[in-house]
């Protein structure tokens, strides 16, 4: 399964005009490479916009509670089911909790889950990819492992994992932390494979490059070689994977919450808020819109960001 991809890269990679700009020239100083990347990235309007929107969302979710100090779990039973007003710009829910505060609290969880799960999946993917690409002996077994994971039915497995381990983990770490660990691990464990394959492919080609040979000839050991020479050069596919990973993790978390398998009902996340408000779609459509739009907008902006990064960093892996 891995052979074809590996062989096709040199063939389809071709020198595109856009690619020529960013093709990392080994001897060139690093700064100018990132300048090229930035120039290329700037052209992609959607990516710039996506980046700004994503940054805004993250900032408002994490810094917003400083400005908007209503406790998301405070129940004001007289003010329940209210529409947007000055006191509650996003309205209130069926217990009179402030929706804006809950959206921010929920966003923190959702974004945090997204970033942590992405980090875990990147860590795993990069580790396995680099090891497999760099050490010939490990290649076979690690790639078999990757194939094995790719052959697992992921969504059902994810559901099974969440079903099975939610009780022991929430018993050990408390319901929120337990579920957080569970969801992050489950998403991380089921999404590292594409990163591993891309990184491995890049490492394989890098290994044959002159600068690696040169470094080896002056006696650089393996650890140094990987951290100093290989990793900085595979950073581009990793960054692209990172953005896609965040998007994927946010969607997965909200889908789990939507199926009732995510965080407990009293713990807001965007997915959970959406799930809870679907029943009220007709009376209070805004209650469904807020989390729905928040999820969609975040994922959309991250995807655009990733798309731009991909164009800017490495046109050859576009679409993979």
């Amino acid at each position: 399964m891995t052979e074809p991809t590996e062989k096709v890269i040199p063939g389809s990679g071709g020198a595109t005009p856009a690619g020529a700009l960013t093709e990392p020239v080994p001897v060139a100083p690093v700064r100018s490479k990132w300048r090229d990347v930035w120039d290329q990235f700037k052209i992609h309007k959607g990516a710039v916009l996506g980046g700004i929107v994503f940054l805004l969302i993250v900032l408002s979710v994490f810094l917003g509670p400083l400005l908007w100090s209503i406790d998301p779990s405070y129940i004001d039973i007289r003010a329940r089911n209210q529409g947007p007003s000055l006191a509650h710009p996003f309205g209130t829910d069926q217990l009179g909790r402030d929706t804006l505060a809950r959206m921010m609290a929920g966003g923190q969880t959702s974004v945090f889950v997204g970033i942590t799960a992405m980090a875990l999946s990147l860590l795993l993917g990069t580790l396995i990819g680099v090891l497999a690409g760099f050490f010939r002996k490990l290649d076979g077994i690690l790639m078999r492992l990757t194939d094995l994971f790719l052959a697992l039915p992921l969504l059902p497995l994810l559901l099974v994992m969440v079903m099975l381990f939610r009780a022991p983990l929430s018993a050990a770490f408390g319901p929120e932390t337990g579920i957080f660990i569970l969801i992050v691990t489950a998403i991380g464990l089921t999404s590292w494979m594409p990163t591993a394959r891309i990184v491995r492919g890049d490492v394989l080609t890098l290994k044959e490059r002159e600068f690696v040979l040169a470094a080896r000839s002056i006696g650089t050991n393996n650890t140094k070689m990987i951290t100093r020479h290989i990793l900085p050069n595979v950073i581009s596919p990793i960054m692209v994977s990172a953005t896609l990973g965040i998007a994927n993790a946010i969607i997965t978390e909200s889908a789990l919450s939507f199926l009732g398998l995510g965080f407990p009902p009293d713990f807001p996340t965007w997915g959970r808020l959406l799930f809870d408000s679907v029943d009220y779609l007709q009376q209070y459509p805004e209650r469904v819109m807020w989390p729905g739009v928040a999820i969609s907008l975040t994922v959309l902006s991250v995807n655009y960001l990733g798309d731009g990064l991909r164009d800017a960093l490495d046109p050859r892996i576009r679409g993979r």
């Binding site: 959607g46 998007a247 969607i251 909200s254 889908a255 939507f258 959406l274 799930f275 679907v278 779609l281 469904v288 729905g292 999820i295 969609s296 994922v299 959309l300 995807n303 655009y304 798309d307």
Partner: peptide
């Protein structure tokens, strides 16, 4: 196409 895989199906479906 970005919208297609950014907006979750449980949102579009219900809508």
């Amino acid at each position: 196409s970005m919208l297609g895989f950014s907006v979750p199906t449980f949102f579009t479906g219900v809508l």
